[in-house]
């Protein structure tokens, strides 16, 4: 192992030490946010793989997270729970009796979502044009319609309640780190180069003998898998899921994260996830009633979303590169930075 690898491993160990410390000392609320940060990091990194690295604008996360959440939820609920919950129409028998522990349920949730990703990507990537965005946007709306109507599977509008709370800070961050490793290794390989080639110039990529269809599929299916797993983690964290839960706001939040971090930069995404998730918590202030200099301003629910969308538009117009642009954080650049500063001081 070289010095840089050791540094990377050390910082991951440091991260987990922080989380371990926080688990005992920080408030439940703060730890809940850190759990969300872990899950969102995995979601955002996946989302950046298809949008930033491969350059295919997509709006899939809320739909895919919903699928992962439903699949995992159905698998981790006990048959007795399901029988009690499906009061309008009983659940289909083979699902009714299916029950397993958390880890395989998450994996299956991820695989089912990956398969859906395959089914969606297949028609879309065969044609040129920006159809992925509108198809995935439509898919997010459609999955809501479908989960509302397939009552014997999803319990319809009633949703699924009382999910076992398996998700802990360790599950969240274990998956986040794993997803980051897988995705960054992919990006730093011939597959990643091909994805960036497709992003920069699709015709030229084809002329290099790259099967652009499969390269896009690879990015999309990988993203789908981790989004499915993320959905499972979220389901067990929130313990209730219903058709209206995974709205477009989830996708929008992730879009802001990857834009702030820099389209195509995974380390930028990590940084931005922390900034945006915590920023979003702090922004709740604008929805609370407040008194400024004796002036009473009533709380405006939904104001956060307006702020978010204005922020996104402004970033796109004035700061398209985000924090990192397409660059990645590297130890070398950090060393160089300090070296330069030292020279400057002398």
């Amino acid at each position: 192992m070289n010095k840089k690898t050791i540094l990377t491993v050390l910082s991951v160990v440091l991260l987990f030490l922080f989380l371990w410390y926080g688990d005992g000392h920080l408030s439940t609320y703060a730890m809940r946010i850190w759990e969300e940060v872990g899950i969102f990091l995995m979601l955002a990194a996946s989302y950046n793989l298809i949008n930033g690295v491969t350059g295919q604008f997509s709006l899939e996360p809320n739909g895919f997270v919903a699928i992962g959440a439903y699949v995992t939820a159905i698998l981790i609920l006990t048959p007795a729970q399901k029988e009690a919950m499906f009061i309008i129409t009983p659940m289909v028998p083979w699902l009714q009796n299916l029950h397993m522990s958390f880890f395989p349920a998450l994996i299956i949730g991820g695989l089912v979502t990956a398969f859906v990703g395959f089914l969606l990507g297949f028609p879309v990537f065969r044609v040129r044009g920006d159809y992925l965005a509108i198809v995935t946007l439509g898919f997010g709306l459609t999955i809501r319609v479908v989960s509302n109507n397939t009552v014997p599977i999803t319990n319809g509008a009633l949703g699924l309640k009382g999910l076992p709370t398996y998700t802990t800070i360790w599950w969240c961050w274990g998956w986040a780190v794993f997803a980051m490793i897988v995705i960054m290794r992919m990006v730093n390989s011939e597959f990643g180069r091909a994805m960036k080639a497709v992003r920069d110039d699709e015709d030229a990529a084809i002329a290099m003998g790259i099967n652009t269809f499969w390269i896009k599929m690879t990015a999309f299916i990988t993203a789908a898998f981790f989004e499915g797993v993320g959905g499972g983690l979220l389901a067990s964290l929130i313990t209730i899921i219903s058709p209206t839960m995974f709205t477009f706001f989830l996708t929008f939040e992730l879009l802001i994260i990857i834009v702030v971090g820099g389209l195509g930069s995974m380390t930028g995404t990590a940084l931005a996830t922390i900034v945006v998730i915590w920023g979003s918590e702090i922004l709740r202030v604008v929805e609370q009633p407040m008194d400024i200099f004796g002036l009473h301003i009533p709380g405006i629910p939904g104001m956060r979303m307006v702020v978010f969308s204005v922020l996104l538009i402004l970033i796109m117009i004035f700061a398209r590169e985000g924090i990192m642009g397409q660059k990645e954080f590297s130890w070398d650049s950090l060393f160089n930075f300090f070296k330069k500063n030292k020279v400057a001081q002398k």
Binding site: N51, G55, F57, L59, D130, A133, F248, F252, L255, V259, L263, I300, P301, G302, M303, M305, V306, F308, S309, V310, L312, I313, M316, I317, R320
Partner: peptide, 21 residues
């Protein structure tokens, strides 16, 4: 192209939420 598309979705979300507010 992706910048313009992202902005378009931003405008969409802005209008929806502004009118919600």
């Amino acid at each position: 192209r992706i910048s313009a598309l992202i902005t378009a979705i931003g405008v969409s979300f802005f209008l929806e939420n502004l009118f919600l507010v």
